[in-house]
Amino acid sequence: MKRSNRKILIGVLIIGLAVGFLIVRGISTTSAYYLTVAELKESPTGLNLGAEETVRVGGDVVADSIAYDQQALRLAFELRDQQNPAATIRVSYAGPKPDAFEPDVEVLAEGIYRRGDNLFAADNLLVKCPSKYSSEEGSK
């Protein structure tokens, strides 16, 4: 092999290794479990959640549990599991209530779960838009 080609190959290898390193580091420091409410409560075996580990949890907003303080911008509500409605957690979120946040909508919360209080401190809240296009009329 020509020497210049070897040097180029070495350069490519270095970039490849750097990318591999970045990906591995990225996954290990930024990835988070995506769980349902029931999974979060049970914390399945093999899933060692640290006390301060950020997770994402998805579920439906319990209808009459919403408390919003507009002055202080604090939102509190309960989230229930989509398959198993008996499993619920309390969620608190510091920030304005998102646009589409309503009773029974599907919500994705990102934050830390305090098992002792059954309280999920969310620092990010995403509302999955209910697809209004598949409402009753359309499915008749």
Partner: peptide
């Protein structure tokens, strides 16, 4: 068997 997601940070 677990869904692990990465976000914008990754």
């Amino acid at each position: 068997g677990n869904k692990v997601t990465v976000g914008p940070a990754f």
